Computed example of a mutant assay.
Amino acid sequence: MLTSKQRAYLRSLANGIDAIFQVGKNGVTPELRDTVHNALEARELVKISVLDNNMLGPAEAAEMLASRTGADIVQVIGNKFVLYRASKTKPVIELPPVKK
């Protein structure tokens, strides 16, 4: 679970990246889940757009992909959303520490 500071930091990083995947009319398929899983392992932060011909809204698609890949939803805005998951092999993004 991300804190608000961590989420804000990740939103600032995601601002400069382009959407690398699209959720189309077929929705969240196993193939899309697998490719997003691999991209999260390599990049840790991915932006995905939802096409207008999709039956799912961006929030629903984000929730489905996040639960199926073990990622956290950073942001849902317009027809795009951002997912984050720390890499198990080589972490790239260092999140701000959690204060207790």
Rank of each mutant, 00 (worst) to 15 (best):
G27T: 01
L10A: 11
F21I: 03
I20Q: 15
L83M: 10
V74G: 06
M64T: 03
F21W: 08
N15T: 10
R33I: 02
A59Q: 06
G57D: 07
A42S: 14
I20N: 08
G16A: 14
V74N: 07
V76C: 04
N79C: 01
E31Y: 06
V46L: 06
V74H: 07
V23S: 00
E94V: 14
N15G: 12
L10R: 06
I17D: 12
H37A: 14
A61T: 02
M55Q: 11
K99A: 14
M1D: 15
A14H: 05
I48P: 00
R11G: 09
I48L: 01
S87E: 10
R85P: 00
A66K: 01
T89H: 15
Q6H: 12
K90E: 11
K100L: 09
H37S: 07
S12R: 14
A61H: 00
A39V: 05
I73D: 04
P91L: 15
K90T: 15
Q75S: 10
R68G: 03
P30W: 08
R7S: 15
R33M: 03
L51V: 05
V76S: 02
T29W: 08
N26T: 10
L51P: 02
A86C: 06
K5W: 13
G78R: 06
K25E: 14
Q22T: 03
Q22F: 02
L56N: 02
V23P: 00
R7P: 07
D52I: 10
A8D: 09
T29K: 12
L51F: 05
T69S: 04
I20Y: 07
G16L: 15
L2N: 04
P58C: 06
I93E: 06
G70A: 13
Q22L: 03
V50E: 01
H37E: 12
L51Q: 08
V36E: 05
P91A: 15
G24W: 05
K80N: 02
V92M: 14
N53R: 15
D72C: 11
A62N: 04
V98I: 12
V82N: 06
L2T: 08
M1V: 09
E63M: 07
R43T: 08
L13H: 03
V23C: 01
P58D: 07
I20H: 08
V82P: 01
E31L: 03
Q22V: 01
R7Y: 12
R33S: 05
V92E: 10
A66C: 07
K90P: 04
L10Y: 12
L56Y: 05
L95M: 14
T89L: 13
G70C: 12
K99V: 10
V50R: 00
F21D: 01
A8I: 10
E44G: 05
G16T: 13
A42Q: 13
D52Y: 13
A14R: 02
T29H: 11
